[in-house]
Design a protein around this nucleic acid. Structure first.
Lengths: 187, 187
DNA sequence: GCCGTAATATGATGGGTATCATGTAAACCT
DNA sequence: AGGTTTACATGATACCCATCATATTACGGC
């Protein structure tokens, strides 16, 4: 039953990674503690040895998902040439991203949940979003810092809105049309 | 019957209107049948006399909310002068709209839920969105029908994304900054 | 090697959920 | 006017949920 400190730390990591994925796939209220623990290969009772509450896990998982998102963007920016924003938009508005919410942008997957949920998730979400927007503003073209910032906020809104709508819609043709129209903004 | 047919029809309307509001405020899974019925002044048992299932109600409520959304846009287009899109954006990206999800855009409030939920809600949502996009494309400026359509899809994505993010964020200053940046796109 | 302690398992608790079963009384139809 | 229908209420069912209580077991420090 008892495991190495190392294994315990690995357990916590598995819980967090699984939560970051499953919350994005099924929503903050769409997956329960028992299922999250089963996903990490543990039973439900062990949960409260690792986190104070489900709310605390939501916060930690949001933070982790946000960090992952920033990391993905940094990798996109580092590889390839031409406009950073254009390359980010191409990846963000792809079918691959649309169909993989569990490993995709947490803002598109969780924003509505976070707005209703409040608590630790909302705080982590806001912090992560602030950081991502700061990063994006730097990577954006524009004469002044204020103009770059404004452009980054508006562009990010377009990305999130298009992805959210493309996922919600029942009709594959309409879904792809939404993504394509948003992509055309960045040409 | 304890009530007249007229009163029964009114009951159904109250259930639907309340559901359309409460689903947007709390999410499709965030409010239960019992609470919805209490909101309509009835008890939970009466529900299945009016709807086949909660899923069926979600579908009907999504349709109603979507119709209301189109109606609001038509009223905005009919009153006032200048660019229709600019006036829609001003209303859509207002603090008033941000703080009143229950009577606001169902796409911004429910898209993520709908994507996960599937079922009748997703069908109604898609139909309503298609209609709204058709309407918006007509009200949009552009040389060709295809250009207007593309512009309408991208603009709508920007609106939805900005509102969703503005609602999710914990920081009033950042929230207003997001709305303002999106508004500037339509100037 | 032994003992405290920490990670995990099992199980209980209290509350919420959607849905179904049944009873009742009044509106509707003939 | 009387029998039928039906909107509604009460209550039951079976399940899921977050959280807590307790037991077990083996690691970590001594």
């Amino acid at each position: 039953m008892k495991v190495t400190r190392e294994e315990a730390a690995a357990s916590r990591e598995r819980i967090l990674d699984g939560a970051a994925r499953l919350f994005r796939e099924r929503g903050l209220d769409g997956i329960g503690v028992a299922d999250l623990m089963r996903d990490a290969g543990l039973t439900h009772g062990a949960f409260y040895g690792h986190f104070d509450s489900k709310d605390a896990l939501m916060g930690a998982a949001c933070e982790r998902a946000m960090q992952g998102s920033i990391g993905r963007w940094e990798r996109i920016a580092a590889s390839g040439r031409g406009s950073v924003m254009k390359r980010i938009a191409a990846a963000y508005l792809s079918l691959r991203h649309r169909d993989a919410p569990g490993s995709g942008c947490p803002a598109a997957a969780l924003a509505a949940d976070v707005a209703r949920q409040g608590g630790a998730a909302r705080r982590s979400f806001t912090d992560g979003l602030r950081e991502q927007l700061r990063w994006l503003a730097v990577a954006t073209l524009g004469r002044t810092a204020a103009a770059r910032r404004k452009r980054a906020l508006a562009d990010y809104s377009t990305l999130v809105g298009a992805l959210v709508l493309a996922r919600a819609v029942d009709d594959p043709a309409l879904s792809e049309e939404i993504l394509a129209a948003a992509r055309s903004v960045f040409h």
